[in-house]
């Protein structure tokens, strides 16, 4: 596995992380190292073994359809970097 600079730039863009050109090679090397390490897993032969989806054997727990939560606007908005009245606010986004 070898990660190129263009892919590194694209990953950064998708993750909304701004990278200067000078930083790019450094990040590329580090990510490449991580991916290479994880890639060792593909040396294991898993032919015919069903994918493991979790460490628990139970299926997904389900809850009943009742309203038990919400009504905590002030608490939620207290953590907002920007707000106005009952709303969060963000820089204007119009498509």
């Amino acid at each position: 596995m070898s990660l190129d600079l263009a892919t590194t730039r694209r990953i950064a863009k998708l993750a909304r992380i701004g990278l200067e050109d000078a930083e790019l090679e450094n990040v590329r090397q580090k990510l490449d190292g991580i991916l290479g390490w994880v890639d060792q897993l593909s040396e294991v032969d898993v032919e015919g073994v069903p994918p493991m989806v979790g460490t628990e054997t139970e299926a997904l727990r389900q809850r009943e359809d009742v309203v038990t939560d919400g009504n905590c606007r002030d608490a939620i908005l207290s953590c907002a970097p920007e707000k106005s009245g009952p709303f969060y606010t963000v820089p204007k986004v119009v498509e």
Partner: peptide, 24 residues
Amino acid sequence: SNSKLFSGASTTFGAEPNSQVSLV
């Protein structure tokens, strides 16, 4: 449904802004 797919907040249409929001 009465509540949301993954949280217990209400789904009623037209409520006060951000009043039907859980931490999830």
